[in-house]
C-alpha cells in the first residue's frame, strides 16, 4: 500500500469505523448538549474539526521533540492539556482578528472545546498509535469530520423529534441517548470495512 492510500484509509477509518463519538465514546458532552439544532451542531462540528486538526499536528510535535526527546513521559497529560487550552485561545483570537463573520458563528463554541474530551483523547491516541506527522494531522482532521458527522446527524434527528410524540419520562436526555444507541448500532455496520 502506498503512503497516500494509507492516509486515505486512515481518514475514512477514523470518520466511519472508529467514529470518535459513537465507537470510542469521546466527545459525548457536546454530542448531547449542542445537538438541538442542525445549524449550531454544524458550527460546533466545524470549530471542533479546526481545533482537532491543529491539535493532531501540535501534539505530534510536542510529543516527538519535547516529551520523547527529553524523556518526560509523566508530563504528557499536563502538557497536552496546556497545548489544547492555548491552541483554543489562539484560534479564538486569530479568528476574531481575521474573520469577524466566522467568529460570530464559531466564537461561542470555542471556549467549550478545551474541556471536550474528544480533543484530549485525540492527543493521547497519537503517541499510542505511533502515527507520523502527516498521519497525526490526517487523524485529527478525520476525527473532527467524524465528530461533525455524528453531531449533525443527531441534531437532524432531534429537530424531527420535536414534532414526535415522545413519552413524558423519556423526553430530553433519555430519548437522545436511546437514539444515540441506535446510531451506534448503525455505525457498527462499518466495522471491519477498513483495518488500519
Amino acid at each position: 500500500m502506498s503512503e497516500f492510500t494509507q492516509l486515505v484509509l486512515l481518514f475514512f477509518g477514523t470518520v466511519f469505523v472508529n467514529n470518535f463519538i459513537l465507537v470510542r465514546f469521546l466527545g459525548i458532552c457536546p454530542f448531547l448538549g449542542v445537538s438541538k439544532q442542525v445549524e449550531t451542531a454544524m458550527g460546533m462540528g466545524l470549530a471542533t474539526t479546526f481545533v482537532m486538526t491543529l491539535t493532531g499536528a501540535a501534539t505530534w510535535l510536542i510529543n516527538t521533540y519535547i516529551l520523547e526527546a527529553l524523556n518526560l513521559p509523566f508530563l504528557q497529560y499536563v502538557s497536552f492539556i496546556i497545548v489544547i487550552a492555548s491552541l483554543v485561545q489562539f484560534v479564538e483570537m486569530f479568528i476574531k482578528k481575521t474573520s469577524p463573520v466566522l467568529y460570530k458563528s464559531l466564537g461561542i463554541f470555542l471556549p467549550l472545546i478545551t474541556t471536550n474530551c474528544a480533543i484530549l483523547g485525540l492527543a493521547l491516541l497519537i503517541p499510542l498509535n505511533g502515527y507520523s506527522f502527516i498521519g497525526s494531522t490526517v487523524f485529527g482532521f478525520g476525527a473532527g469530520i467524524g465528530f461533525t458527522l455524528a453531531i449533525v446527524l443527531m441534531a437532524g434527528l432531534r429537530e424531527k423529534l420535536e414534532f414526535g410524540d415522545v413519552p413524558g419520562v423519556l423526553k430530553g436526555v433519555p430519548v437522545t441517548l436511546i437514539i444515540a444507541g441506535i446510531m451506534a448500532m448503525a455505525f457498527m455496520g462499518f466495522s471491519g470495512l477498513i483495518t488500519i
Partner: peptide, 20 residues
C-alpha cells in the same frame, strides 16, 4: 449488545428515564 457502545447509550437512557 449490552457491552457494546450501542448498549451503553440505551441502558443509560433507560436508567435516566427510571430515575426521572
Amino acid at each position: 449488545i449490552m457491552v457494546l457502545p450501542a448498549g451503553a447509550f440505551i441502558t443509560l437512557g433507560i436508567l435516566i428515564a427510571i430515575m426521572n
